[in-house]
């Protein structure tokens, strides 16, 4: 008899505890989520506000100017934009075909053991810290490029402006090569997932019609994952555009627009790495933030664009199934 009131007391306690627990959990999870959104907004605001001094001094013509003179108080972003665009383009041009071929190997060709082994090794390539890859870039890849790759390029393709001039162990070309190594695993692992998602009825149908494996890949696999490949390339591009440390180590520093890819240059990110610590005037610091703001806008736009494609693609895929 005496257990009954105790039990109801217990449920009463429990109900109160559950009420508090539920509210608390909701509050905590919602709070963390809203904080994440607020953080992104805060980062954008902080960078833009710190760039304000340079923006009010130079306006939008900052983007067109190639000056960077602390004493004469003139700054511009053009060489950095050029270096960022060119080094990322080189990276993408090298990495995309390589990554597609790797993804095709992993999804269509390799036996299971090779799929697991090579797949993990390619992912491991992405895990190497960029500062270590940059160190390797200066001390191993740089000398090889200067002694072998660049002389070879200028012998055969020297009639092109971009492959002319004195070989050098640090420059935009080497930055592009290092970025390519970073971008390959990103594009390869996304594309592998894409290719594995291609409905096997379509693949087998093509093979049954007498297509060779390559014809099946070209006609079915590559065609049906085209938007996804584009998204993977854009995500890889986003990584290449924003990489700062490894590029700062190998690009050689120079706020110019060199005609030769062998020559040193700078990207938006590498310029920030080089000068941020030792800035001497407020306008210079603000100009560095202006470079950062440009990079932030480019980075956010490329990411949004890739997300948009991936989302639409996902919808299309689940709708088709």
């Amino acid at each position: 008899m005496s257990t009954l009131p105790a039990a109801s007391e217990l449920t009463g306690h429990r109900r109160l505890r559950d009420w508090i627990g539920d509210r608390l959990l909701l509050l905590l999870t919602a709070g963390a989520s809203i904080a994440a959104v607020a953080l992104i907004v805060l980062i954008a605001l902080k960078v833009l506000r710190s760039a304000h001094l340079a923006f009010s001094a130079f306006g939008l013509s900052f983007v067109k100017s190639s000056a960077w003179d602390v004493n004469h108080k003139v700054f511009g972003a053009l060489p950095g934009l050029y270096g960022t665009a060119v080094s990322s383009l080189i990276a993408l041009l090298i990495a995309t075909p390589l990554a597609l071929a790797i993804a095709l190997f992993l999804s269509e060709l390799a036996p299971t053991w090779a799929r697991v082994l090579v797949g993990s090794l390619v992912e491991t390539l992405a895990a190497i810290p960029s500062v270590v890859l940059g160190l390797w870039g200066i001390l191993v890849l740089g000398p090889i490029a200067a002694n072998h790759l660049e002389p070879w390029l200028s012998r055969w393709f020297g009639w092109l402006q971009v492959f002319s001039g004195q070989p050098s162990s640090s420059g935009i070309l080497i930055a592009g090569l290092i970025l390519a190594i970073m971008v390959v695993p990103i594009i390869a692992s996304i594309c592998r997932e894409l290719f594995l998602q291609v409905p096997s009825e379509l693949e087998e149908g093509a093979l049954a019609l007498g297509a060779t494996r390559w014809e099946m890949v070209r006609g079915v696999v590559l065609t049906s994952s085209r938007p996804g490949i584009a998204a993977a390339m854009i995500l890889g591009l986003g990584r290449a555009l924003g990489e700062a440390i490894a590029v700062a180590q190998v690009i050689g520093a120079g706020w110019t627009i060199p005609t030769s890819l062998f020559k040193p240059g700078d990207t938006l990110a590498s310029k920030i790495v080089e000068e941020f610590q030792g800035y001497s005037t407020k306008l210079q610091l603000s100009s560095l933030f202006y470079l950062g703001a440009i990079l932030l806008v480019i980075g956010l736009v490329t990411n949004l664009f890739a997300q948009l494609i991936v989302r639409r693609f996902d919808v299309y895929r689940t709708g088709a199934r």
Partner: peptide
């Protein structure tokens, strides 16, 4: 926001 945070260049985090 989470997806954008993944793609945020780390140098932007640094200057922030």
């Amino acid at each position: 926001a989470i997806d954008l945070m993944t793609g945020l260049p780390s140098i932007i985090i640094a200057i922030f």
